[in-house]
Simulated scan of single mutants.
Amino acid sequence: MYLTRFRINTGRVGARKLLASPQTMHAAVMTSFAEPPAPGSNGPRVLWRLDRDGNAATYLCIVSPMRPDLTHLVEQAGWPTTARWDTFDYTPFLERLAKGDSWSFRLTANPVHSIRRNADEPTKVTAHIGPTHQLGWLLKQQGKAGFRILEKPAEKQLIPGHDTHDLIVHGRRQLRFTKKGNGGQVTVVAVTFDGRLEVTDPDAFRATLTQGLGRAKAYGCGLMTLAKA
């Protein structure tokens, strides 16, 4: 597995086209590989995420089973003569993960749930809109995904009894685009979670990091990355 980070030159026309369309960005990411994983495979897949920091820098993060070649992205949306990209061997890090490890994390995800108005109606997948429900969605994922979100001490809770976990949600984006092939309109609500976690099941957690969490993985959702707590 490989972890790649590429800074996007947002002043370029090509970069703005990529940032405006998750479909276009997905296509650009997938063409970084001579033989990308087959769609629908149960093993590690190509995951990507856009990160925007406080200094207005925008980064493309990619986790992939193969080493990518981002030459086309440098030419279209980077600095061709002064900057390229950084790729790291991710496998040794993944193999070292152990039960009880604590990490800070970032995850961009598409929190959804299934609803229906009456018993005769089929269920419909719809996005969680409010931060409370979005945070609740992630808390429901934690056990099967191999981690638990760490809790705050009572004295650090802004709203005692409610602000219980070391977790925030921000950067809500509503992505609308026309799906190629059938012309259908697609809407994806993406939010970013920052927090602290503890590894409870290393194997399940490795699968979360390499296969993604939640839906809309082709559109920049599902990638979780870690940093020292």
Results as ranks from 00 to 15, higher is better:
67 R>N: 04
129 I>F: 10
194 D>Y: 06
5 R>D: 00
207 A>V: 04
136 G>E: 15
157 Q>I: 04
52 R>K: 10
76 Q>K: 12
64 S>E: 04
153 P>Q: 00
223 L>H: 00
30 M>L: 13
205 F>C: 11
21 S>V: 08
85 W>Q: 09
105 F>W: 06
160 P>H: 05
51 D>I: 05
219 Y>L: 14
183 G>L: 15
74 V>P: 00
120 D>W: 14
76 Q>M: 13
105 F>E: 07
139 L>W: 12
180 K>F: 09
157 Q>L: 05
225 T>Q: 12
127 A>H: 11
144 K>L: 15
217 K>W: 11
46 V>Y: 11
97 L>F: 07
155 E>G: 01
4 T>K: 03
90 Y>D: 00
179 K>Y: 04
201 D>K: 06
134 Q>V: 12
111 P>K: 09
49 R>A: 05
83 A>W: 11
133 H>L: 12
146 G>Q: 09
128 H>T: 03
124 K>V: 14
20 A>T: 13
123 T>V: 15
188 V>L: 14
166 D>K: 04
14 G>T: 05
119 A>T: 06
132 T>W: 06
25 M>G: 13
123 T>N: 15
120 D>C: 11
94 L>W: 07
51 D>E: 12
97 L>S: 08
116 R>P: 11
49 R>M: 01
99 K>E: 02
193 F>I: 02
45 R>V: 03
129 I>C: 05
199 V>H: 08
178 T>M: 15
71 T>E: 06
206 R>L: 03
184 G>F: 08
208 T>F: 08
127 A>C: 13
158 L>Q: 11
8 I>S: 05
161 G>T: 04
171 G>T: 04
180 K>R: 15
70 L>A: 00
228 K>D: 14
159 I>G: 08
56 A>R: 14
184 G>R: 12
197 L>I: 14
179 K>V: 08
209 L>H: 02
152 K>T: 01
87 T>E: 06
150 L>A: 00
112 V>Q: 15
219 Y>K: 06
64 S>V: 07
226 L>A: 13
164 T>W: 01
27 A>I: 08
94 L>C: 05
63 V>C: 09
140 K>W: 03
58 T>V: 13
183 G>R: 11
163 D>F: 01
78 G>Y: 09
226 L>D: 04
114 S>R: 15
6 F>G: 01
59 Y>S: 02
133 H>E: 13
75 E>S: 10
112 V>D: 00
210 T>A: 01
229 A>F: 07
107 L>N: 00
82 T>M: 06
76 Q>N: 08
18 L>Y: 09
